[in-house]
Simulated assay, not measured.
Amino acid sequence: MNADPTIIELSIVEVEAGGNAGGGAYEYAFSQRVLLCTAKGEIQIRLNWMGPNQFKIYAVATSASQGQFEIRPIEQEGKQAVIINHCTRPELINLAVVVQGPSKKNPLIVCDPQVINIPDPDWQMLAVANG
């Protein structure tokens, strides 16, 4: 596994109109919109600490095939999600970070970066050779 985790920051704000989530009520952005992974590693999704502390990561869902991702429990304050990416096969993975917002009208906001797994063939051969 990679020694250093891949850190993706998620910024989200409530807007009057025209946002990209929650029926236009919220605007979100990831520090990396598309993540290309070539080896097993840890992905940390962190809520940006700027602004009011009113959002929490509620859940993480994924389209990854069985065994690709290991989603760890969300940390208690809801500011970080950790995913172990086993990167076992080439695959485009849709990832949904569900954030709980302050509004009673639109309490859950779906934020969705993409993860692309393209295992390094040399890494795969080394993993097979080392069992």
Rank of each mutant, 00 (worst) to 15 (best):
T6S: 06
N53W: 14
G18F: 05
S11V: 00
Y58D: 14
G41E: 11
D112E: 12
I7S: 09
V60M: 09
E77C: 09
F69P: 04
H86K: 05
F30L: 07
V115C: 03
P102N: 12
E70L: 11
S63G: 10
Q124H: 06
S63H: 02
V110Y: 13
Q114H: 09
I118K: 00
M50F: 11
K56R: 13
E14H: 04
Q54F: 07
A21Q: 09
I93W: 00
V115N: 02
V128R: 15
G51T: 04
E27R: 06
I109W: 04
V115P: 00
I93H: 00
E77S: 08
L92D: 10
S31A: 12
K79Y: 13
N48K: 15
N85C: 10
Y26N: 00
S65P: 08
Q124V: 15
S31I: 04
P73I: 06
L35H: 05
A17M: 07
E14V: 02
Q80G: 06
Q114G: 09
K40V: 03
E75P: 03
P90A: 09
D112H: 05
V82Q: 14
L36C: 05
A81F: 00
L95P: 01
I7T: 12
I8D: 02
Q124Y: 05
P52I: 09
Y28I: 04
L95G: 01
W49I: 09
C37W: 02
P121M: 02
P119A: 00
A61Q: 15
P113Y: 01
Q80V: 11
P90Q: 08
G41Q: 08
G51W: 10
A25D: 00
I93R: 06
W49G: 09
K105E: 15
D4N: 15
A129I: 09
Y58M: 07
N48S: 15
N53R: 13
V110L: 12
I7L: 10
M1G: 13
D4H: 08
P102I: 12
D112W: 01
V13W: 10
I57G: 03
I74C: 06
A127M: 14
N117D: 15
F30G: 05
A64K: 06
I45M: 05
I45R: 06
P121Q: 14
E9W: 11
V13N: 11
V99W: 14
A129S: 11
Q80F: 13
S31Y: 01
Q114K: 10
D112I: 04
V97L: 07
L108F: 15
A39V: 07
G23P: 05
G51H: 14
P5S: 12
D122W: 15
A39N: 12
F30I: 04
G22D: 03
L10K: 02
L92R: 00
K40T: 02
G131W: 05
G78Y: 02
A29T: 07
V13D: 07
M1H: 11
L108N: 12
E70N: 07
F69C: 03
V82A: 12
F55M: 05
Q80T: 08
